[in-house]
Design a protein around this nucleic acid. Sequence first.
RNA 1: GGAGAGGUGGCCGAGCUGGCUGAAGGCGCCCGCCUGCUAAGUGGGUAUAGGCAGUGAUCCUGUCUAUCCAGGGUUCGAAUCCCUGCCUCUCCGCCA
Length: 422
Amino acid sequence: MLPLTIFRNNPELVKNGLLAKGETAGIEALVEMDNRHRAMVTKLNAMRSERNKTSELIAQSKRIGQDAAELIMAMRDLSEQVKTLESESAELHEKISGELEYIPNLPHESVPRGSNAEDNVVVRVWGEKPEFDFKIDNHLDLGAKLDLFDFNRGAKIAGSGFPLYTGQGARLERALINFMLDYHVENYGFTEIFPPFMTNSAASRTTGQLPKFAEDMYRTDIDGLYLIPTAEVPVTNIHRDEIIPEQDLPKFYVAYSACFRREAGSYGKDTRGFLRLHQFNKVELVKFVIPETSYAELEALTKQAEAILKALGLHYRVVELCSADLSFAAAKCYDLEVWSPGEEKWLEVSSCSNFEAFQARRGNIRYRRESDRKVDFVHTLNGSGVATPRLLVALLETYQTEDGTIILPPVLQKYMGKRELK
RNA sequence: GGAGAGGUGGCCGAGCUGGCUGAAGGCGCCCGCCUGCUAAGUGGGUAUAGGCAGUGAUCCUGUCUAUCCAGGGUUCGAAUCCCUGCCUCUCCGCCA
């Protein structure tokens, strides 16, 4: 959520930012409603002040045993007016904040302007494209030969897009998750979190899924809970409605969770295998930091996510998203894309974003500064570290050998209890 | 699922026979004084959000308003009374 003051004081900044994100935003209506609302509040405050003063007079009269009937009669009318204006004001306020919740974050000034994903900028590339001197299989063939997973039975149980991992495939999934959690805890001092996999609407609102993207989430109708599309939602909400002492910042959390996405509107795209799923596993990194450090922390976060791919020896690149490709809540974002030899494509396995105060404002997540003891909103960041499905694709395809066995990278061997899949 | 208790400021904890209570008292924290150092003592300060004004910006000053879990209601007036919801705790039942 953006602060209303910036619409008042710097409407051009907002317009340009929204335009860069590809939003055609009508700010004028919002500003007009804000003006109207402020006039109401001013009037309301005056009326309430009057009421409070008179109430005090009534109290004094009663205390000394005088009759206050006249004052009370006069107040009855004013009180009615206050109530009417209160409800009008509240209604308008709700409308304003309702609209505000649909307005995305503005891109940071360092973000390249662009109109679509074509304008994203490749920042760096790590490793080399693996070469093979035999005809390689894609991950589906490899999975079938080694009985790692079974999409048909997954579909029978739940539906398409719900993978069933089997045998050493299931073990490998668990190994990847454990490896990534341990890595971030041991090397970077992240605190491990195991969050709820469902959140209420307030939590989903903080991170920006609600109200605009309600259709993308699974919801349990009876209890009004949402299955999380990412651990970002519960973990960011750990500190919702809190004031964190500055000395407790920064806070680094790492969490595994299953992620559930309806992927409404994306049917027909990337339907093969693991490329797009309704349920998948992900290890997520979340940071709460003071505003001054958030962009340095974004760079660090990206490198921390990259470290996983390096440790696994996978060829990847870092892409800086252009303004138009930024997600709703992000001010700046780097994607990590791993190379899939079978698909001959780069696959997105991580998104590392700085949300600045956008989520903090929505979730009222603040900190108390040491210098002047004032409160201010924290900056939040998160990045996948990383999502498993496409990682698995790259891993299987990269480490396949001619006889069909997969030689596991050393860091995974202890988690698997063996050196290869065959 | 059944029965009961309760939700007050950073924390603990009064108030809850409705009216100088934004809220006693304590702890913590900040500034000063005192003390050879520490401890103790002592004086003061210490919520958040919003409107308006000050030639005035997410700063400063003044002023007004709101907030005692949330939302309604009663009343001239609600932390205090009534209703609904949420949450926490205790006991019983069920259960991985």
